[in-house]
């Protein structure tokens, strides 16, 4: 008997109450939100519960929503997979825009290590309890977190490229 998404929802609400919410099915994927403070407990419960058995952490990544209110400007997205029942879920934890912090999942999945380092490297999200939270793909001397939306892809001072006709914002062109 496959694991129904309603069972996941019921079990989580029973255990965590209103700390988990926003259950929705988007494009074959059951998703919900979790309060950042209890994210680690929820992940542990999902992994260790005898019915849920989400044994595999597929992916961790960050998202930046600069247009949201301060409390919800960053999101850490976890994709979990239960191999026994073959169910995938997506969990989102929204974080504060000025001080993004969440507990590290390295205590549950060894594979979270580099993925969290990558998320830190690009978004500046602090994973508390991570054994080695330092940059991974960018160089250590870098001072910014480049995947945040406020960093443009190209140097704003470039004058050799005029993109106005191609629907891009003329950031790099002097319009005067």
């Amino acid at each position: 008997m496959a694991l129904e998404t309603t069972v996941i929802e019921d079990k989580l609400t029973e255990k965590f109450g209103d700390k988990v919410f926003g259950f929705v099915d988007i494009k074959d994927m059951f998703s919900f939100e979790v309060e950042a403070a209890s994210a680690n407990d929820v992940l542990r419960f999902l992994k260790e519960d005898a019915v849920l058995r989400f044994n595999f952490l597929t992916d961790v990544c960050g998202v930046h929503y600069p247009d949201n209110e301060v409390e919800r400007q960053f999101a850490v997205v976890y994709h979990l997979h239960n191999w026994m029942d073959n169910v995938r879920i997506r969990i989102k934890a929204f974080l504060n825009g000025e001080n993004p912090e969440i507990d590290s999942a390295t205590n549950l999945y060894l594979g979270a290590n580099w993925q969290e380092r990558e998320t830190y490297d690009f978004y500046g999200i602090i994973f508390k309890g991570h054994p080695q939270l330092k940059r991974i793909l960018n160089m250590d001397e870098m001072t910014v977190f480049p995947m945040r939306k406020e960093y443009p892809m190209e140097d704003g001072g470039r004058t050799d490229k005029d993109d106005r006709f191609f629907g891009r914002k003329p950031d790099n062109v002097n319009n005067n």
């Binding site: 988007i26 494009k27 994927m29 998703s31 992916d59 994709h79 995938r88 997506r90 629907g167």
Partner: peptide, 10 residues
Amino acid sequence: EVPVPKTEVY
């Protein structure tokens, strides 16, 4: 310039 819905996919 093609219509793209607002969605999330894995």
